[in-house]
């Protein structure tokens, strides 16, 4: 009997020792926000490329990401284990916040423009993530939720879930707001059972490597804001209705149109590869 135990234990002990040896590597994934290759901040934006008379101002830009995975050099995908001691992240979900409530912005004072965590391998060559909050966390009460899901301005109270993306600008004199979250939900607030339109965009970016010395993932606002609304009478507020051109453009941009690649995220090395799946 002792022999059997020893024989069984050996590989287990070996595995424990091995895993203790290959320590997870710390990883930081920075994000940048740009408009026509120029960085965008609360105090600096520029003029519209479609109408140079129009200045653009950033009011708010925040978004949730979850299910963040990296591809190691042998082609296998594994989770980026988020550092949940950060107030911007829990085990699975992170809030990116590009506004500091200063200058033209209206939001919260803090900013967070990077994901931090650990990865099982030393090197990675691609990244993928889902824009939004996972269903299991999405329909809780934000007033009693823990960070980063405790932000009342990131909740769509009447729809019963979070705003996955909160993007707000002033173009010329016009306010343009894009809020994306799950819509057509059933059940009750704090107990939603199902949403017809989950609106979680899956994004996969090939050629994203840490060998490139922490190059950022870029979020480009070009395709979102160069949408010409001059002759459109449509509302410039999008609250999830896909029958409004500004909304449709915003959903296309983030990658929620199955027939179009996402146009928001890129690695700067290669264009984004859209996984055509509305999760």
């Amino acid at each position: 009997m002792p022999t059997t135990i020893t024989r069984l234990s050996t590989p287990i002990i070996a595995a424990i020792v091995l895993s203790a040896c290959s320590k997870p590597s710390p990883v930081t994934i920075p994000f940048t926000l740009t408009y026509h290759d120029q960085p965008v901040t609360c105090s600096k934006f520029g003029t519209s490329s479609t109408n140079t008379d129009n200045t653009i101002k950033l009011k708010d830009f925040r978004l949730y990401l979850h299910q963040i995975e990296l591809q190691d050099t042998s082609g296998d995908w594994s989770a980026l284990t988020l550092d949940s001691t950060s107030p911007w992240q829990n085990n699975n979900t992170a809030l990116l916040d590009f506004e500091n409530n200063d200058a033209d912005c209206q939001g919260t004072p803090g900013t967070n423009t990077a994901l931090t965590g650990t990865f099982s391998s030393e090197n990675f060559q691609a990244i993928r993530f889902v824009v939004g909050v996972p269903f299991e966390l999405n329909h809780q009460n934000p007033l009693i939720a823990s960070a980063p899901l405790n932000e009342s301005s990131m909740h769509w109270h009447w729809q019963g879930g979070y705003k996955f993306v909160r993007a707000e600008f002033i173009v010329g004199e016009q306010s343009r707001r894009l809020h994306i979250g799950s819509t057509q939900c059933k059940g009750e607030i704090n107990a939603i059972s199902h949403c017809e339109k989950p609106n979680r965009a899956q994004v996969e970016l090939a050629n994203y490597s840490n060998i490139n010395n922490n190059a950022p993932v870029n979020i480009a606002l070009d395709k979102l804001l160069d949408f010409n609304l001059a002759d459109s009478k449509s509302k410039l507020t999008c609250m999830g209705h896909s029958d409004n051109p500004w909304c449709l453009n915003g959903l296309d941009w983030i990658g929620l149109n199955d027939s179009k690649p996402q146009m928001a995220f890129s690695t700067g090395i290669s264009a984004g590869i859209k996984v055509n799946k509305n999760q």
């Binding site: 939001g107 909740h155 109270h157 019963g160 607030i189 507020t237 609250m239």
Partner: peptide, 29 residues
């Protein structure tokens, strides 16, 4: 709004709603 089944839900709409803002507490409660 069939999702809003308690007064405790409804109170959040005027307090935090933004389109248009009614009481304007979104993010600054």
């Amino acid at each position: 709004n069939p999702l809003s089944t308690q007064l405790e839900h409804q109170a959040r709409f005027p307090l935090f709603g933004e389109t248009p803002a009614e009481m304007g507490l979104s993010g600054i409660e």
